[in-house]
Write a protein that binds this DNA or RNA. Structure first.
Length: 581
RNA sequence: CGGGGCGUAGCGCAGCGGUAGCGUAUCUGCUUUGGGAGCAGAUGGUCGCCGGUUCGAUCCCGGCCGCCCCGACCA
């Protein structure tokens, strides 16, 4: 493809609304353009990388045995009412919905569990027809609270979504495992440095789930990892081993009141009493759809609200207002303690961080007073401990006890063991060997195509632009004609371009009437892995320059050998995991 | 949902009660030709929308829409 006949405009200035480097570079390279908040156009150049990403997903899914199909994007409310997700997604304002001329309600699908389940329920009646994994790669819609980072969190985006149907849990394990393997191959082929972590299943529902995280500073998620044993989890889901506590080994002292005038906050009490925050026990009052709860944890820790929601089995969790705190606990905000809550009509949950606590400081249950010497067992009578404190860097690994580290990651893929949540709700059942009717056991899987492409840019760029992995580059090779005004030089460039095209190479040809500097800048910005400079001083010796974008190495080769040299370099960059077309 | 900010040329921005400017991009000419060239000239704007104040509004006021950022309470 010749640039002179292409539709491509690079821009020098950084777009004002771009925050993430991938957004900046993809926009500057002319590969995408914003149409509205979270809604983007892909230019021909941008579409090429997007399609290559999509193609890798499709190839690996087909190889794994999954079958591609197409489900509707426009879906009727009735379908969503069957699973109960219409109400839930509507209340979260995630769903784009609309009405037809007959006032029927529809949504633009953010995912397709209901549609695929209704399809399978109509077709599958026997265990003999299982297992089966179906997938599609189609546009999805989510009315995100805050779309941002360009392709990373859009409201309209291309997503792979796969669904497995099995007769039992062992079958699900196998289907899930096949997806896991396909995911690993996909992200490897995309040239990404990724990690797989345990995750919270969230609104989709289900039991086990794992996220595929591309490590990058712009990542929206925090992931906890243990370098020693390989444990990894989204921070929302992460557990920790037992943290050393200041009261370890101490003998319980007497409970005594201590006046703390005007000091309701942890930091204020810590300073006033000259203690550490870890010696304190704090009580947070939350409101949920099933009533108020008090969460008890150590003073230096934060609540992991996702973990707390799961522990409580609730969907909504917000900190209570001051009035609600008082009416629930009988104590003003800042002075709630775990020992004066018995008899109150409120659920009390304690985090493991306060297990065995003695000589702790906490609220006395009345304004301007705290207590010292609190023993959690003796004074508060707490017996059951859950785990809902947010993991911190340096906390002990839940498996091996070595220190955890926290990094940022971009969630490019997610796999869930769904179980029978949808198949039960929607009566997607089959008859087993014994003639009994059972719900199918489902798994659900997703990969953000545009997000994966953007993640590749996050991981592969430098000050001058994108450094595409070969597999995702819009074109693998670019020929730069240095002085097209010179007839002989132009013919050489044309000739090389023609020869590469003839042998099927993926080549872009900058034949514009521009100065070399402009072309070099654009070449770096667009990030084609291989560049061939034709013209100028090298051509005077009958040579062209072969430039590798990733390491900026330059090698002069005779024009006559250029095709072979490009082929060899391309082979070298492709590495061992290339899959034939 | 709350707070803050911004909507002026394709892009980045300035401006101001008297009908609009800079950089860049684009077009033309000349010069130039290995890392976003120089000079000269030119094109390009319902100043987000609606209403109000005013002799006069891009500017002031009100409303709406759009967009960006931060936050969503850790007692």
């Amino acid at each position: 493809m010749r640039w002179s006949k292409y539709f491509l405009q690079t821009v020098r200035e950084v777009p004002g609304d771009a925050e993430a480097i991938s957004h900046v570079l993809l926009t500057r390279a002319g590969m995408m353009r914003r149409i509205a908040a979270g809604i983007y156009a892909l230019t021909p150049m941008g579409l090429r990388s997007h399609r290559k990403t999509e193609r890798i997903v499709r190839e690996e899914m087909n190889r794994s045995g999954a079958l591609e199909l197409e489900l509707p994007i426009l879906q009727p409310r009735e379908l969503w009412d069957e699973s109960g997700r219409w109400a839930r997604y509507s209340s979260d304002h995630i769903l784009f919905h609309l009405r037809d001329r007959k006032e029927g309600e529809y949504c633009l699908a953010p995912t397709a569990e209901e549609a695929v389940t209704s399809l399978v329920r109509a077709g599958v009646t026997s265990y003999r027809q299982l297992p089966v994994t179906l997938y599609q790669i189609r546009t999805k819609f989510r009315d995100e609270i805050r779309p941002r980072f360009g392709l990373m969190r859009g409201r309209e985006f291309l997503m792979y979504d796969g669904y497995s149907f099995d007769a039992d849990a062992a079958g699900l394990d196998a289907s899930y495992g096949a997806q896991d393997g396909a995911y690993r191959r996909i992200f490897e082929r995309c040239g990404l440095d990724f990690t797989v972590v345990e995750a919270d299943p969230g609104a989709i529902g289900g039991s086990d789930s794992q996220e595929f995280m591309v490590l990058a500073e712009t990542g929206e998620d925090a992931v906890v990892r243990c370098a020693a044993c390989g444990y990894g989890a989204n921070v929302e889901r992460a557990e920790t081993g037992r943290r050393p506590a200041p009261w370890d080994g101490e003998t319980p002292g007497a409970l005594e009141d201590v006046e703390t005038p005007g000091r309701g906050g942890i930091d204020e009490v810590v300073e006033f009493l000259g203690i550490t925050a870890s010696r304190m026990i704090k009580c947070l009052v939350y409101e949920t759809e099933s009533g108020p709860v008090v969460a008890i944890l150590r003073g230096d820790l934060d609540v992991n609200e996702v973990a707390l929601k799961n522990a409580l089995g609730v969907q909504h969790l917000t900190l209570a207002s001051e009035e609600k705190v008082e009416s629930t606990t009988g104590s003003p905000v800042g002075y709630v303690g775990p020992h004066h809550l018995s008899g109150r009509n409120v659920r009390v949950l304690a985090d493991g961080s306060v297990r065995g606590a003695v000589n702790a400081v906490t609220g006395a249950g009345r304004r301007d007073w705290h207590v010292r010497g609190l023993s959690i067992d003796r004074d508060a009578g707490v017996r059951d401990f859950l785990s809902f404190a947010m993991a911190r860097s340096g906390d002990p690994c839940p498996r091996c006890g070595k220190p955890l580290s926290i990094a940022r990651g971009i969630e490019v893929g997610h796999i869930f063991k769904l179980g029978t949540k949808y198949s039960t709700a929607m009566r997607c059942e089959f008859t087993d060997e014994k003639g009994e009717t059972r719900p199918v056991v489902m798994g659900t899987y997703g990969i953000g195509v545009g997000r994966t492409m953007a993640a590749a840019v996050e991981q592969h760029h430098d000050d001058d632009g994108i450094v595409w992995p070969l597999a995702l580059a819009p074109f693998e090779i670019e020929i730069v004609s240095l002085n097209p005004a010179d007839e002989a030089a132009r013919r050489s460039a044309d000739g090389l371009y023609g020869a590469l095209v003839k042998e099927g190479q993926d080549v872009f040809y900058d034949d514009r009437d521009e100065r070399p500097g402009v072309k070099f800048k654009d070449a770096d910005l667009l990030g084609f892995p291989i560049r061939v400079n034709v013209g100028g001083r090298a051509l005077k010796d009958g040579k062209v320059e072969l430039v590798t974008r990733s390491d900026r190495s330059i090698r002069a080769v005779p024009l006559a050998e250029a095709v072979e040299a490009v082929r060899a370099l391309r082979h070298e960059l492709a590495g061992p995991i290339e899959v034939p077309a």
